[in-house]
């Protein structure tokens, strides 16, 4: 009776991103780098962005952890390339909504592959896994804005 929920959690797309993460590489030209670590479970993500003006020109990460945390950050970086900082903000907010079970967010096609993670909202203890990459993103956006005038 629980298979449906489990299947909704472990969608093929998630496992595919876990096995073949997109943008999992060093980005030597990054303008901002954020290291997020969850001491409770040991999941780790180092997110690197190259921000050019108000756009994210490139997004890469290095990380290790569970399928949810790693797939989420992989999917996130796909959406980030070419996005403006404001769009990246919106993406993060909408993803947080998705994790809180928001139905409109679940229908929002602009989330792309990230929509596959909606099943995580039914596993409260795993939500923090999915959010690890977005926590890094939000911190990166904050820093990029602070540093912006200097550029």
């Amino acid at each position: 009776m629980n298979e449906p929920t489990l299947n909704s959690l472990y969608q093929q797309l998630i496992l595919e991103h876990y096995r073949k993460p997109r943008n999992r590489a060093e980005l030597p030209e990054h303008t901002v780098e954020i290291h997020m670590y969850n001491p409770v479970c040991g999941d780790e993500i180092r997110l690197q962005l190259r921000v050019d003006g108000d756009r994210i020109a490139e997004a890469k990460f290095i990380g290790q952890g569970c399928s949810i945390s790693q797939a989420a950050v992989s999917m996130m970086t796909v959406k980030l390339e070419g996005a403006t900082l404001a769009e990246a903000d919106d993406l993060a907010n909408q993803f947080v909504n998705l994790m809180h079970g928001d139905e409109a967010a679940a229908r929002d096609r602009s989330l792309g592959d990230l929509r596959a993670l909606q099943g995580v909202s039914k596993f409260p203890v795993r939500i923090k896994c999915a959010l690890l990459g977005f926590d890094a993103l939000q911190e990166a956006l904050k820093q990029s804005r602070l540093e912006a005038p200097a550029h």
Binding site: L6, L9, C66
Partner: peptide
């Protein structure tokens, strides 16, 4: 295998 222990634990918990 390559199943992360958290994923193992979530799946076991569902059973």
């Amino acid at each position: 295998g390559d199943a992360h222990p958290h994923d193992i634990s979530t799946i076991l918990d569902s059973e």
